Lab assay of single mutants.
Amino acid sequence: MAAGGDHGSPDSYRSPLASRYASPEMCFVFSDRYKFRTWRQLWLWLAEAEQTLGLPITDEQIQEMKSNLENIDFKMAAEEEKRLRHDVMAHVHTFGHCCPKAAGIIHLGATSCYVGDNTDLIILRNALDLLLPKLARVISRLADFAKERASLPTLGFTHFQPAQLTTVGKRCCLWIQDLCMDLQNLKRVRDDLRFRGVKGTTGTQASFLQLFEGDDHKVEQLDKMVTEKAGFKRAFIITGQTYTRKVDIEVLSVLASLGASVHKICTDIRLLANLKEMEEPFEKQQIGSSAMPYKRNPMRSERCCSLARHLMTLVMDPLQTASVQWFERTLDDSANRRICLAEAFLTADTILNTLQNISEGLVVYPKVIERRIRQELPFMATENIIMAMVKAGGSRQDCHEKIRVLSQQAASVVKQEGGDNDLIERIQVDAYFSPIHSQLDHLLDPSSFTGRASQQVQRFLEEEVYPLLKPYESVMKVKAELCL
């Protein structure tokens, strides 16, 4: 049975990233139509530049190519590739079939990587351009969430054990800070992308030097003109047959890092959902379990974690691919890159769409948070109580021993009897502590235990987050809708 299948058929496997999760716009960027249309555009740009620099290419040939950029006979191309065992030459023939007058000058002087690699770089750039505003929107939604809850005390956790208090907004800023680093890295790697350009079979530009009869300047002009037509500021000066596969490492490393950030955020949300302090959106008709109707599973956060793990592992592909590119190139890269580049971007696209949807509907339960604080705060307040007693004339050592005994009794009630923490009640009825009984409410005010959390939130948002989001103001209103 021949390899390949009808990918629109229910009898043929289709990647869930495309069929179930990723956005239509990201799927289109990695589609065959987008790819092969870009090949034709690159052939047109090459012909236009070659004509401008004096090669015998007519206006009629150029116009014929322009008129057929979208006229792609995919069936013919597939048949040609089956016959020739070469995808680029299959599309040269297919393009030439609908451009008979231009057929002889299509791909003039070029090698397969002229269309293959340059198209990949265009796709990487455009895919990054799709991700950047999506990530900015996630940051914006979380920034709104953090600002609104900047002063809401909550129990902090280290080692997932109760620690000092923080605020809900401050905790959210930990998430935002990681995503801001990801946004900066995505922008950097996007701006650092260079075009492969017009380089020939081993990167020496020998074929173009021959076409222009040894004119170095025209060869350099050709490279520059096509690079500018493709919208790049610069091209690699040095290439082998391909652009260095280190570029793929750079791009997928940034995406993998984004995956790590999203995994951490969504894990926190899942843990908070278990504590009943916070939940992701839950639709009115949504079913959490087929057997347990009360369940409210954090399905979206779980999906993000599941896909983020996949995204983090994909960076190993370009690392290994770059390491086995012998001399000017081997074909070890080809099949692998067809999979890992598309999957990385479709996965990143999915987790950003999902995280935006989550961040637009996060639900906080202040009463649950308050109750958990009441359970733990008495123990945390013991040092403040000791200091207040010393100020009232008591002995630190005597007070410490009193607190120690009462704390152990209260802990026994919590752990052995399943009761509430009654340390404060014990202190309130103990005559030894009568000098500070009137101060206990103040000493137990949760806001006095959150330090500068709310001020940190305000400063972080104003100095770091809002300036970073400013270039994306025009796209901030787009909502994230999930079908599944």
Rank of each mutant, 00 (worst) to 15 (best):
A2Q: 09
D6C: 12
D6T: 08
G8Y: 15
S19G: 14
R20L: 04
P24R: 07
P24N: 15
P24I: 13
P24V: 09
F28M: 12
F30N: 06
Y34V: 04
Y34K: 02
K35L: 06
F36C: 10
W39Y: 11
R40L: 10
Q41R: 08
L42G: 04
A47Q: 02
A47I: 15
A49E: 03
A49F: 00
Q51Y: 05
G54M: 01
P56D: 11
I57V: 09
I57A: 12
I57D: 13
I57P: 08
D59V: 02
I62Q: 05
M65D: 00
K66W: 15
K66I: 03
S67W: 03
S67G: 11
E70A: 10
E70H: 15
I72R: 07
K75R: 05
E79N: 13
E80S: 01
K82I: 08
R83E: 08
R85F: 00
D87Y: 09
A90T: 14
H91S: 06
H91Y: 05
T94K: 07
T94N: 01
F95Y: 00
F95T: 08
G96L: 06
C98R: 07
C98V: 10
G104F: 01
I105K: 09
I106L: 06
H107N: 14
L108Y: 12
L108V: 02
L108F: 04
S112G: 11
S112T: 14
V115F: 10
V115Q: 09
V115E: 06
V115C: 08
V115H: 15
V115S: 04
D117I: 12
D117H: 04
N118T: 05
T119I: 04
T119A: 08
D120F: 07
I123C: 03
N126V: 02
A127P: 15
D129R: 03
K134V: 12
K134Q: 15
K134E: 01
L135S: 12
A136S: 10
A136R: 13
R137C: 06
L142M: 11
A143T: 05
E148Q: 06
R149V: 02
R149G: 06
A150Q: 15
S151Q: 11
F157K: 14
H159Q: 02
P162D: 04
T166M: 03
T166H: 01
K170M: 15
C172D: 10
W175H: 00
Q177L: 01
C180K: 13
M181C: 06
D182W: 00
L186D: 11
R190S: 06
D191W: 05
K199V: 02
K199Q: 10
G200C: 00
G200Q: 14
T202F: 07
T204R: 06
S207P: 01
F208D: 07
F208S: 03
E213S: 04
D216M: 02
H217M: 04
H217W: 04
K218V: 00
V219W: 07
E220G: 10
M225N: 02
M225P: 04
V226H: 15
T227G: 03
K229L: 05
A230W: 07
F232C: 04
R234V: 13
T239E: 00
G240S: 11
K246V: 08
K246T: 06
V247H: 12
V247F: 09
D248M: 06
L252R: 04
L252C: 13
A256E: 15
G259R: 14
A260I: 08
S261Y: 12
S261V: 05
H263V: 06
H263C: 15
C266F: 01
D268G: 15
D268Y: 02
I269N: 03
P281N: 10
E283T: 14
Q285C: 03
I287M: 05
I287R: 04
S290F: 03
S290N: 08
A291T: 07
P293D: 06
K295S: 13
M299W: 06
R300C: 00
E302D: 08
R309E: 05
R309I: 15
R309S: 08
H310Y: 08
L314Q: 06
D317S: 08
D317A: 01
L319S: 07
Q320K: 12
Q320W: 07
Q320D: 03
T321E: 06
T321H: 12
S323F: 13
V324I: 13
F327Q: 09
E328R: 07
R329M: 01
L331T: 15
L331P: 03
D333T: 00
S334A: 02
N336W: 03
R337N: 10
R337A: 05
R338F: 07
I339A: 09
C340W: 07
L341R: 03
E343P: 03
E343S: 05
A344V: 03
A344T: 01
A344Q: 01
L346I: 15
A348R: 08
A348E: 11
D349T: 09
L352D: 13
L352M: 13
L355T: 01
Q356D: 09
N357W: 13
V364F: 00
Y365M: 06
P366C: 14
K367T: 14
R371E: 01
P378H: 02
A381T: 02
E383K: 01
I386T: 13
A388C: 11
M389Y: 02
S395R: 10
S395I: 01
Q397T: 07
D398N: 10
K402E: 10
I403V: 14
L406M: 06
Q408V: 14
Q409I: 02
Q409E: 11
V414S: 11
K415C: 15
K415S: 13
K415E: 15
Q416N: 03
G418I: 08
D420A: 08
D422A: 14
I424V: 08
I424Y: 09
I424E: 08
E425F: 13
I427Q: 14
Y432S: 14
Y432D: 15
F433E: 08
F433V: 07
P435R: 04
P435V: 06
H437V: 05
H437M: 04
H437S: 11
S438E: 00
S438Y: 00
Q439D: 13
L440R: 05
D441E: 11
D441V: 08
D445Y: 03
P446L: 11
S447P: 02
T450W: 15
G451V: 10
A453R: 02
A453D: 10
V457W: 15
Q458M: 08
E464S: 13
P467L: 10
P467V: 15
L469F: 02
K470V: 10
P471V: 06
P471N: 08
M476F: 07
M476G: 15
M476S: 13
E481G: 12
L484K: 04
